[in-house]
């Protein structure tokens, strides 16, 4: 267990205040517009806020647990996301062993490499070793029907749900001069910016949204929501510069990049949902859907954020 950095304490206090405000607004809205619980938008909003309390509490607990806590939390998130993804793929009986290995070997091994901070392995384990091993396992039973699709889907599931998601805890292994023992704040920065960007896109979209930005992929996303959300998330990023190793301008730039990638990640994952004819990936996070519904924007921004910070700020 690591000592709680005062900056982290300040951030958690800020998020707590934000959630209290959100809960109060949700309560007032419910009293005024949905006293009998019949306004679906407001009921969903309040469900989302309640789920946020749980997610923030879990993140805070993980931060308290230090590296081990964060690695375990994200390993479980990856497992749950992979479970949602694989439920939708065209896997056949012949893929049984490849899938068993994906869940029970590749997920733990990838997070073990993250935990021992072995950059040389965690950055190639899934793109190289799993990429070659899984199709080999899938051939063992001699079933060639839909082979390329089956193999590609499992690899894609692993890249999204495990490889990309594991780059959030990988931020802990960066070695930034003058920023020792504070890396957990990099994770906090990434997650706060990307999630607030999602929330602010939702809020701006609900308040001002008129023009749909990608009607065929995601009917709920609007131009107004996108511009307002990304712009205000960039401002939030600049305002959080105090807890990062970056200057104010660099913080704003990184936040802009994170919010932009997060938005596009949401679109990509929506396209998959549309194709498979589902609205949500799962049901475990009340009001939000599944783990992938909540992680899609994190997954797309985490690896790029990791590599940009590693290239420009880290000495390892």
């Amino acid at each position: 267990m690591t000592a709680l950095h005062p900056d982290l304490f300040a951030l958690l206090f800020g998020i707590g205040a934000l959630l209290v405000t959100a809960s109060l607004i949700g309560y007032v809205l419910q009293r005024r517009y949905s006293p009998r619980g019949d306004n679906a938008v407001i009921e969903n909003l309040n469900q989302r806020i309640r789920s946020w309390w749980i997610m923030v509490a879990l993140m805070a607990l993980a931060f308290l647990g230090g590296k081990t806590g964060v690695v375990i939390l994200f390993a479980f998130a990856s497992f749950s996301a992979l479970r949602e993804f694989v439920t939708l793929v065209n896997a056949r009986r012949a893929d049984h062993w490849a899938l068993a290995v994906a869940f029970f070997v590749i997920v733990p091994v990838q997070y073990y490499f993250i935990w021992i901070e072995y950059y040389g392995m965690y950055s190639i384990f899934i793109p190289v070793y799993a990429f070659l091993l899984l199709p080999i396992l899938a051939t063992l039973r001699g079933d060639s029907q839909g082979f390329l699709i089956r193999v590609a889907e499992v690899q894609w599931a692993l890249m999204i749900c495990v490889f990309c998601a594991s780059h959030v805890p990988a931020l802990l292994s960066l070695d930034i001069p003058g920023y020792e023992n504070r890396n957990v704040l990099l994770i906090a920065f990434l997650i706060v910016v990307v999630q607030l960007s999602d929330v602010l896109q939702y809020v701006w979209g609900k308040l001002l949204g008129r023009r749909k930005i990608a009607p065929r992929l995601s009917p709920s996303k609007t131009v107004e929501g996108f511009v307002g959300g990304v712009a205000s998330a960039t401002l939030v990023g600049a305002g959080l510069a105090w807890m990062t190793p970056f200057g104010v301008l660099a913080s704003a730039g990184l936040a802009l990049m994170i919010a932009f990638l997060g938005f596009l990640g949401g679109l990509v994952m929506s396209a998959i949902k549309r194709d498979r004819g589902i609205k949500d990936w799962g049901h475990l996070i009340e009001g939000h859907g599944g783990f992938i519904d909540r992680l899609d924007s994190v997954v797309f921004s985490a690896p790029i954020f990791f590599h940009v910070v590693r290239y420009f700020w880290s000495v390892t």
Binding site: R83, E84, V86, T87, A91, H96, L99, F104
Partner: peptide
């Protein structure tokens, strides 16, 4: 729904699926 895909006949390791 789906439990037969989790553990098809003759397999002994369950695959996590919703």
């Amino acid at each position: 729904a789906n439990l037969n895909r989790v553990m098809p006949k003759g397999e002994f390791v369950p695959i996590p699926l919703i």
